[in-house]
Design a protein around this nucleic acid. Sequence first.
DNA 1: GCGGTTTACGCAATCGATTGCGCAGTTGTC
DNA 2: GACAACTGCGCAATCGATTGCGTAAACCGC
Lengths: 346, 346
Amino acid sequence: MELEKVRPKSGRAVKMTDIARIAGVSSSTVSRALADHPTIPEATRNTIQALAREHGYVVNRAARNLRQSQTQTIAVAVPLGHEREQLISDPFFLRLFGHLADEISQRRYDILLVREPSPDAHWLGRLVQSQRADGFIIVGQSDQHQALNLAARDYRPLVVFGSELPDQIYCSVGSDNFEGGRLATDHLLRSGRRRILFLGPAELPQIDLRLDGYRQAIGDHGLSVDESFVLPAHFTGPSAHDAVRDLLARGVEFDGIFAASDGIALSAIRALESAGKRCPADVSVVGFDDSDLASQSHPALTTVRQDFPGIAATIVDHLFRRLDGEGTYSSTLPVNLVLRESAPDR
Amino acid sequence: MELEKVRPKSGRAVKMTDIARIAGVSSSTVSRALADHPTIPEATRNTIQALAREHGYVVNRAARNLRQSQTQTIAVAVPLGHEREQLISDPFFLRLFGHLADEISQRRYDILLVREPSPDAHWLGRLVQSQRADGFIIVGQSDQHQALNLAARDYRPLVVFGSELPDQIYCSVGSDNFEGGRLATDHLLRSGRRRILFLGPAELPQIDLRLDGYRQAIGDHGLSVDESFVLPAHFTGPSAHDAVRDLLARGVEFDGIFAASDGIALSAIRALESAGKRCPADVSVVGFDDSDLASQSHPALTTVRQDFPGIAATIVDHLFRRLDGEGTYSSTLPVNLVLRESAPDR
DNA sequence: GCGGTTTACGCAATCGATTGCGCAGTTGTC
DNA sequence: GACAACTGCGCAATCGATTGCGTAAACCGC
């Protein structure tokens, strides 16, 4: 009964001119009254607002967006460059996305999630041009470095989740991946481990930095890196498990693993256990992220914690500063090592 | 250098009339050429499309949305009725959202995430009227039943994640919560447990159905429900932990717990352990959802698995059928019990 | 070579709200 | 009482693409 007003019998949606007619004013006045424009006296404003509420009138956002060239919407864009699978339901992405969404919606903006299945050099330019959002957050720096640089040349409200890379001109926010890798490896070394594997997709910029930190720590301890201990592994799928299994089958000796994610770490531990090795008795393992799994798994995972809420808050803060016309520099946020059972202190 | 074309020196975005002028045709022709309209001969079409590509032209979506009254966008809306916290970063919601987003983006639609911080009876009507999306998925049936019914009276492309309730006129999709509760409780009873707690927020419709299943199973075994064993607990926070702790402190005896979520189950297990009880030796525990945590926790959680990909696929399928003008009935998807350590078979 | 059909494309209205400018009418000042 | 300033509000242009209708040119058959 109440809703009848929202969609009158005609089936036609109530629009601004309808309210104007009923109120006996022009649509300009209605527009200004609803926007709390000060040139409309309070009495008129209240009357019109009451009328609009009563008739269930809501501003047509498509029309407003067109006229104002802005949308009160922030887009989170995901290029699916090398990952052919469905990236959106990936837990890591979702965790970051959740915090981003919280931050954005607190600022009363809506969130548009856009997935680009076939990114080329111009996908971001196209997206930006389409006027679907006022600002953009890109998750998936990976192989998009050039496309990002291209788009950032003349488009400002754009922030990228990722590492700061040498020749980048866009604004990025991410964890201190180098220090994370260094911390993790240093911890393993200090606890007496000497033959430490690196497991992860080093072709991704953020992961490559973790690998750099791994190398640094090993060097700092006066050791040298055995390149055959640097193993490629994907975040999902069996590659990490298989890599460890194969190594054990070949009789290679090692006593520590630094994995580029908690998921990879858990896969590795499972591979160790099926080969009869114990973690941490025989092999200590350190993960990365401090995902929900890390504290619940068995053994609980020693891991490098990324500050997701902080990262999301920083990304969104930078983005809104850029919307206000400010410039912002890339940020690198600190990480810290969370000690649990899989790589105890000693 | 390439991107110069995307935003010409003037700073003004390329628009359709620009392409039209360059191509020596009218904007109508450009519009139709880009839309692969058959009345435009292939040669002209190709020329115009090439020109558009070369100049980095992209259709302004705000203008198109206004003219066509459609947006190629599905909104996922979250009313934050009783939960004052930030619901979006909640893992349960994100998991469902991820699968929804995968399904929607596969259909080449964008996803708009809208959070309504202060839902009243008309929030959905307002949202629908605002023309920001072509269809709506509502997550958070909880205390919104009346608002949903109100909106569904005359708005069709709307699907709700939740249970089928007695007087509902909207289309909902959800798990068979009743059967889940029955299965979980029946399993505990069959394995010899007799004094079984229910832990969960029974004020939510979906949870209340799980409680009904719990009662049914107990009745089926010829026992009667001890109402003091039905305990309120929230999904987050310490309420589940505290409830179990208090019960143990009062010396109440029990040997089984059916928790309305995996998170609640894990809280309960932690409370048991800090009181010196063992799970499953002293108390068997069954959770709900089969979240990522369930298989990794220690002890691994016996739980009722909800088919998230299936739920998401069904929701989106129903929604698109409704967009095509079809009617759809509410769906209830099967659940199944996953046996792990926290409540073994015997 | 002529009527009729088809082809190719342009004109102008339209979607619905926003906003610069300007006009009445009122108030204020000396 | 004359002129200026201000108040309250409407006119009409505008945002940029889409689309129904119309028309000129090309084409066809006989």
